[in-house]
Write a protein that binds this DNA or RNA. Structure first.
Length: 101
DNA sequence: GGGATGACGACCT
DNA sequence: GAGGTCGCCATCC
């Protein structure tokens, strides 16, 4: 009786996989776009089923990835063209898919 | 079966 | 403007 159906998980995976390089998305946006009730579900999916998804393109609403992965995330994002200022990804402008959603 | 934890967000103080 | 608290759903112990 999973409140979150496989379809929801698939939607999240599709959205994350649909994030273009040089752009980042927030957990809240993905959760909302996938129709999830809680952004935590997105994090749960990433942790449980990270598969081949560009999880490094998913950051928190604070514009900063998880503490343990922050270094890894920033390094990858920087390689994709996302310049993080002081370990923070500028969610403002075209850097975030928020506008695309 | 129950409690604590976790890739988070939003609201309140 | 910054920090702390509560709520959210699922998993792990």
């Amino acid at each position: 009786m999973a409140a979150v159906t496989e379809e929801q998980v698939e939607a999240v995976r599709a959205l994350v996989s649909s994030i273009p390089a040089g752009r980042v998305a927030t957990y809240g946006d993905i959760a909302d776009a996938a129709g999830l009730s809680s952004p935590r579900i997105v994090g749960w999916i990433m942790r449980t089923d990270s598969s081949d998804l560009p999880w490094h393109r998913v950051i928190t609403a604070a514009g900063r990835p998880a503490a343990h992965l922050a270094t890894r995330q920033l390094a990858r994002l920087r390689a994709e063209g996302v310049l993080a200022a002081d370990g923070r990804v500028p969610l403002r402008g075209e850097n975030s898919v928020r506008h695309a959603f």
